[in-house]
């Protein structure tokens, strides 16, 4: 019996939430394709995260564990994972579309001489034939494809499937991490200041644009994000302000920045250029604050306030603080 494999991502010993979302996608496939959901995770000292996978939807967890895998190495991890995909008879291999997922699964698929469909928002298996939907042209179109090579590999866009929870009782199998020659290896991870919520995982994204006039005024955006409480909201930016050097590129939302689809996106002083919309149009609810009633951002916004950011944002921050405080 062939299985549906999820490559899980563990950072700092903790299982990343988008991996549990990939487990949900795998469960959907297993329902029509048959077989079990098997999770593969790499790292050093990953017992806790492996158990968490076994408790949340994985019927079997293969933990490739050992000092050699203390730091991420795309080539070494891909090789070990590809072997496990074969050993566990993987008909499909899923991973979250994160920085690691984008680096690792295309490499695994290359080793398995198959294709990989990236940034997938829906998966299917129909009479043994695997398919997926993915945004193309920066979300200006959606492509539905059918895999013609096996195994079917796909990276799953975060915030698109609910995280798997419960349905525990899976077994954890340990495999020693092979101490191969590493072609590339992570030497250091430099944390962004504080414990910032990653943009693509945030429940709320508050983005600012050129309408904020200068870098220092982004404090308004930061305060609004903070009003949602710790770990909820992240700050984003338009390319205009990234190009101006007000904000780092890691915060850019759009076609040449990050694609986010949070439950709530708030655009402040952003005109809504097509390349910006590409990065946020799939957010569940969009709020726009712009002083120009004709700004294109209002065409995609669910709720708009026409007004001066310097007046509206502090009032909104206060109201959100109160709403959060009152639960």
């Amino acid at each position: 019996m062939s299985n549906i494999i999820v490559i899980a991502e563990i950072r700092g010993g903790a299982l990343k939430r988008p991996s549990l979302e990939a487990v949900t996608a795998a469960q959907q496939l297993a329902q029509s394709a048959g077989g079990n959901v098997v999770a593969i995770a790499c790292g050093s000292g990953i017992d806790a995260a492996a158990n968490e996978l076994a408790q949340n939807g994985a019927a079997k967890v293969v933990a490739i564990d050992g000092a050699a895998f203390a730091n991420y190495s795309g080539d070494a991890w891909a090789k070990a994972i590809a072997e496990q995909v074969k050993a566990n008879d993987g008909a499909a291999v899923l991973m979250a579309h994160t920085a690691m997922g984008k680096d690792l699964l295309p490499r695994v698929s290359g080793l398995l001489d198959t294709g990989v469909i990236t940034d997938v928002v829906a998966v299917s298996c129909d009479g043994g034939s695997y398919g997926a939907k993915k945004p193309v042209f920066a979300g200006k179109a959606t492509m539905t494809v059918k895999a013609t090579k096996a195994p079917f590999c796909a990276t799953i866009r975060p915030n698109n499937f609910a995280a798997a929870s419960g349905g525990g009782g899976g077994e954890v199998t340990k495999v020693d991490a092979p101490a191969d020659d590493l072609l590339s290896v992570v030497k250091e991870i430099i944390a962004a200041g504080g414990d910032k919520t990653p943009l693509q995982e945030a429940k709320v994204v508050v983005s600012g644009g050129r309408g904020l006039k200068e870098a220092g005024n982004f404090r308004l955006i930061e305060d609004l994000a903070a009003a949602f409480g710790p770990g909820v909201a992240a700050v984003g930016a338009s390319r205009a302000v990234v190009d101006a050097g007000w904000r780092p590129h890691s915060e850019q939302v759009g076609q040449t920045g990050k694609v986010v689809s949070p439950p709530l996106y708030i655009a402040v002083g952003i005109s809504g250029a097509i390349q910006h919309l590409a990065g946020m149009r799939t957010a569940r609810t969009i709020v726009a604050i712009n002083k120009d009633a004709d700004a294109p951002i209002f065409k995609v916004a669910d709720y708009g306030i026409v007004g001066d950011a310097f007046e509206v944002v502090p009032a909104l921050t206060k109201a959100i603080q109160e709403a959060v405080a009152n639960g």
């Binding site: 994160t98 072609l183 590339s184 290896v185 991870i189 430099i190 944390a191 962004a192």
Partner: peptide, 11 residues
């Protein structure tokens, strides 16, 4: 860039 941090990789 990785989620919420930067990775330094030698290769």
């Amino acid at each position: 860039d990785i989620e919420g941090a930067r990775e330094v990789v030698t290769c």
